[in-house]
Design a protein around this nucleic acid. Structure first.
Lengths: 93, 93
DNA sequence: TAAAAAGGTTTATAATATAAACCAAATTTT
DNA sequence: AAAATTTGGTTTATATTATAAACCTTTTTA
């Protein structure tokens, strides 16, 4: 049986990637609302995806408030697609 | 976003369930070979699925050797199918 | 100006997965 | 016929992970 990339096989990280696969970019606040996660957990998981090179993270300002924008990288897309392929063999889809 | 049943969202438990969804029953040795897991890990995860009522486990003898036979329950089938549904929304399948 | 909210990060804790060590019975080797 | 190995597991320890709690700084509101 195929391996399931452990970096993607985590509910929150998978949710983040899933969202980012469908949009150009998404900011911290949007990801938090969509995933219904705590800020702490989200921050940690964003870091891990970023460290793995699956997403890029730009910390900037929106007016006077900080704004963290994420988007998926080529590597991230590839990893996500491979993960989906592997999962399909588990779920017979 | 939907919750992913944490009992099923584990590589090895998902692999076990995936196998059992496609056969009448499977024994410990067969599951170990198919999943390429260690005996210890397999034993633990079988227990968890069993405690959750997702599989039944019969410990008997085959000739002079012990034999542990597993099969999925109705509850297990239902949980698996719900898990697959939830996952689909993450993977857009 | 004091209090609360926004947007996060860091640190501590609880849960999980995994492997290592172990056990008893059966089989094989010497 | 001992001794060593294999089979079929279980139990316990360890390393990783996920998660939440506590915290920080700046901005906004009361």
């Amino acid at each position: 049986m195929k391996e399931l990339n452990p970096l993607l096989h985590s509910q929150l990280r998978l949710a983040i990637m899933s969202i980012l696969m469908n949009v150009e970019e998404a900011d911290f606040v949007y990801l938090k609302e969509k995933t219904e996660s705590t800020a702490g957990n989200l921050s940690v998981q964003i870091d891990k995806l970023s460290s793995a090179g699956y997403i890029t993270v730009e910390k900037g300002m929106s007016g006077k408030r900080p704004r963290t924008i994420c988007s998926v990288t080529e590597d991230g897309i590839k990893a996500f697609e491979e993960y989906v392929d592997a999962l399909k063999s588990y779920l017979n889809l």
